[in-house]
Design a protein around this nucleic acid. Sequence first.
DNA 1: ATCACAATAGCCCAATCGGGTCATTTTTAT
DNA 2: ATAAAAATGACCCGATTGGGCTATTGTGAT
Lengths: 209, 209
Amino acid sequence: MAISIGIVEDHTEFRQSLVYLISSFTDYTVSWSYPSVEEALADYTETDVMLLDINLPGLSGLEAINLFKQKSRTQKIVMLTINEDEYHIFEAIKNGADGYILKKSSPSKILESIQQVYEGGAALTPMVAKQVMAFLKPQLANPGTSSNLTVREKEILVLIAQGMTNEIIAGALFISVQTVRNHIKNIYEKLHVHSRAQVVVKAYKDKLV
Amino acid sequence: MAISIGIVEDHTEFRQSLVYLISSFTDYTVSWSYPSVEEALADYTETDVMLLDINLPGLSGLEAINLFKQKSRTQKIVMLTINEDEYHIFEAIKNGADGYILKKSSPSKILESIQQVYEGGAALTPMVAKQVMAFLKPQLANPGTSSNLTVREKEILVLIAQGMTNEIIAGALFISVQTVRNHIKNIYEKLHVHSRAQVVVKAYKDKLV
DNA sequence: ATCACAATAGCCCAATCGGGTCATTTTTAT
DNA sequence: ATAAAAATGACCCGATTGGGCTATTGTGAT
């Protein structure tokens, strides 16, 4: 069974060349292609993979991710873009895109990306991957952030960062309040903070939540 | 297939009358009923809809919502309550209840609520619905703004969201700790939270920081 | 076999916080 | 000008938290 693909791309020429490119392989089928999110949503049918332009008139591709996810949670979404800037990359990732590739990528790279996300992986251009890693590095490197927290401590940190009280956390994890408090004491020591509000701040700043 | 129902209600008489009421319709089946959350959790079996009293000895109904959600994410939960006050309403909604109805509601209203949440809707009494809408309106009208916080309150919120204690905040703003606490109380009320950790969470999520 | 660490749980004490009520002054809006 | 809203400050009380200590159990590494 061929992998089915949907395309949203306003630039007619590029859209058609995508259709042409993909259709030339028997492993892939272009189920539909539209120049706007609005039209794609109106006529939506589920596909295995979607190619979604970011710069679109009307609803942008970034805003559309969630809308398409609502239609189908299994479909994979690959963002097509001309810009490699941090904002768009992280917005796309945050919204749950499965891939982020440049329009100027070679045909073989585009097909490769489709295959990768179809198989459950993520497709990123090397430059994007680098930025993602650069973003992650300080968190991994910086000791005193999350890295030296134990698994249990991280669990509790997440719950604190949702505003839960110790009692609620204890209930949620089926352990005693005392134990929760002990874990929290250890978390404070490792993160060098002295209150749960500070923990929440750190959790958000260091993107642990 | 009849809609299956679980009931947690400590008041024996009311619980039994609920069971009697519901059982008298072939469309509904009471799978179980318990006087406490603890017993219900221990013996839990999934039902389509749960009626959950708020004022319970031991674990309250509000605290229990999440615990039951862990057992089953598809079951619908309708809170039973005697009070229509804002606090309980928002706590229930925040925790993910699907309905919020008064114990004094007529039998037909109770059954109607069950049917509504079973069909994927939400069941609210008109008064509750009004309060919910009143809370939502300002946010919808003015998106991006935090809910009606005064300038001073926003200042303090920002400082809280940096992990500061009341004493430090008081020092920073050259006002007394008492005043800081009063402002914070008002912030809590407006944001419907009950701890500074939750304020920090909200501050980051709604992006006021 | 032993050591280190993680997870569990308890106790104690002081500090902080959350919530309720009240009161005064200043600013803003009508 | 007057009423409403905001900012300031206080008291009280109970709940929660933060910090210091000890202890048992299980697991993984040496």
